[in-house]
Nucleic acid binder design. Structure first.
Lengths: 144, 144
DNA sequence: TCCAATTCAGTTGCGCGCAATTCAATTGTG
DNA sequence: CACAATTGAATTGCGCGCAACTGAATTGGA
């Protein structure tokens, strides 16, 4: 295989990854729109449902997103009345994000989503878990 | 495992995929910026290097992008003088995109990129090819 | 042939992502 | 203690993605 061949679209890994990632987000979209959420907003809610009262910095570290993305997103979630944002008392540089009762209540409506998505992938739980592990390894290699 | 557990961020496939896809694009960014391209623009150039004079519709079908994304992107590539856009004579609804000499010349400067990226993944060619196949299968299942 | 339906590109509007910068709060060092 | 360096969030600017829509060109059925 010549070095030229590596420029063939069909031989690259990134493009399928990029297309698959967008396709997965599209699969979530109709389910999430019932809750009034976008996919990145859903990711933030997943973190908050696990750990309420987290700072913007900690959110960014979990989701690999910066304040340029998170600040406006969190303002939209605040407008939707799913979260509150308030300056930390201990360190006035940081902002804590907490769930409102509505934000907490939203969790129940979201419980059916992961299984619905898992079905859409057409993969078994074992295949899903293996693929997640492989993609995670790729992510760790590439992002370091 | 309870249905609640499926809402755990660390157990989902889409998030690693989403993070890995962005990380891969970030790995491309410094290499592509030397050529003056973004990653989606690079994808368009890959198609044109394989098949010059393609329509916007055909580009969209190969890259799974619509005219809302492609039209402004192609205008930027035209401003950069890498492509020309012209209404088709056979069917005036469609627009053909062709490489300029500069666009064609850019290919040589891009030849080293795929290998550099492959190295960054830390995976062997066999692992890369297997992962590409698995991700492609996921994409096909989810997008149909 | 006519004209309704379809197709193709373009436009608008909005929400990310992310680089780069700003600004206030805090930390660490002499 | 002073003050330079660092940190955390916000802001700005730009390029996607994509849904929804527009308008022109083409197609296909009555």
């Amino acid at each position: 295989m010549s070095p030229e061949d590596f420029l063939r679209l069909d031989l690259q890994l990134c493009f399928p990854l990029y297309a698959a990632s967008r396709a997965m987000v599209q699969a979530y979209t109709p389910l999430l729109s019932k809750l009034g959420l976008t996919y990145p907003q859903y990711l933030v809610m997943l973190v908050l449902w696990e750990t309420d009262g987290v700072t913007v910095k900690a959110l960014g570290e979990k989701l690999y997103l910066d304040s340029g993305t998170l600040t406006p997103l969190l303002k939209r979630l605040e407008t939707l009345a799913f979260v509150r944002r308030e300056r930390s008392k201990e360190d006035a540089r940081s902002v804590r994000v907490s769930l409102t009762p509505q934000g907490r209540a939203l969790r129940r409506k979201a419980t059916s989503i992961p299984e619905a998505i898992a079905c859409r992938t057409g993969l078994s739980l074992e295949e899903l878990s293996r693929l997640r592990r492989d993609v995670l390894r790729l992510f760790e290699n590439v992002s370091k």
